[in-house]
Amino acid sequence: MKKLYASADEALDGLLRDGMQIAAGGFGLCGIPELLIDAVVKSGVKDLTIASNNCGVDGFGLGKLLDTHQIKKMMSSYVGENDEFMRQYLSGELEIEFNPQGTLAERMRAGGAGIPGFYTKTGVGTVIADGKEHKEFRGETYILEEGIFADLSIVKAWKADETGNAVFRKTARNFNPPAAMCGRVCVMEVEEIVPTGSLDPDTIHLPGIYVHRLIQGEHEKRIEQRTVRAREEA
């Protein structure tokens, strides 16, 4: 089974259609599939529903898909730091379904694990619980949340072997494994594709079964908030 593709455009060939649901990995700008996002922008596919914790920033990451008005709806937990997002939302051009961050992650994980729904305490007594089934377990109230079954996952890892076994780096792992799991098809971009057999099987973070197409490329890896401390404090 061939998983390696030469470019993001080729890797997405035949997978994109208007109105589809895409799950994207990343937290803020950390660990986002920047090459695949650029390819989605280039494709011109529209009316997208995107499940992603954030929507990038103005002009970078998923923010690029806002500039081109390709997104119809976002499923996110946090959309600050993005003026265009706020503008489109407040003017009614863009729909947003706010999900608590952990609920979003678990909805992706659950969808990928074949679990259509689960109960959680998160959001009970808030607007998030409106219209959702409430149920008592062990004397406490929980709400029903549904698994996400996306048409496509776009994710980013640090390294993968040719079979898609993937390793992430530090906090760039974040939403990438659950996002990868919940898509019918998952396309992954990595900084380095290494020969199969060169990764220690005990250290694989995401088994290749979840990865259908794979590309390698150069990443800008932009930093959103550069914070440092003075040397003297050491």
Partner: peptide
Amino acid sequence: PFEGEEDPDLINAGKQTITELRRTSYFDSA
């Protein structure tokens, strides 16, 4: 981090660059 040692793959929930410790572990959002 000290200036020049920022790592784009290592941020906190406020998206600020941070550092790891000897005890650090990493995991996915779920």
